[in-house]
Amino acid sequence: MQSKPVTLTILDVVSIILLGISTYLALVFAPTELVMGDVQRVFYFHIGTAWTALLGFILAAVFSVIYLVKKDLKWDRYQVAAIEVSLIFFFITIVLGSIWARPAWNTWWTWDPRLTTAAVTELIYIAYFMLRQGIDDPDRRARFGAVYALVGGLSAPITFFAIRLFRTIHPVVIGGANAEAEGGFSMTADMRVAFFFALFTFTIIFIDLFWNRIRLGDLQEKVEQLKLKVTM
């Protein structure tokens, strides 16, 4: 417990190296997009963080179900770890998207399905942490957290489809020509390299942070138990 596993240390180092390479690929290696200019380069990190955040939210919903069935606090700690890391990544996604939107759409924000769903999702998981903060008993905290993460995890995709009833201007970069989308572009081969490398990098970083956060949760649990024992 105290000593960090070697694999995790290696993963830490690998994450940093990959982040460096990915940044190089995105900023230098990939060609400048002709219509939008340099700002298009935030897209690599935008997609990288978005993909991992969604992965984390889906994992969290799965952990909810497992916890509710097995009632083992281990799954609760996994869930908190997944949601916390995803919340940070998703925040980066939203900010990067907004920065990109300013020159591309001429506005920081539009109420388009993806943007609105992103904002609502972020709020759901902030509410999740507010709920947990108000509960002292670890078992109850875990149960309520799991229920809320499940309800939230189901509601977020429905929100997305609900807003899809309206028109979107968000470009669909992968798979599909969206005639209405403004600011879409097609990727050159070098852009693709940077793009897939960013996806890979952020997946590794996510695993690394997720693992570290689980260890933090384990430590928290240990301290709490010892506190109970000492004050008894």
Binding site: M130, I135, T159
Partner: peptide, 23 residues
Amino acid sequence: TMSVQTRTRDILLPILLFPVVVP
């Protein structure tokens, strides 16, 4: 049912409920 069992019961419900009932 969850929110009334927390410390912040008076303010928590809308925060939990509104983002989930958006659809």
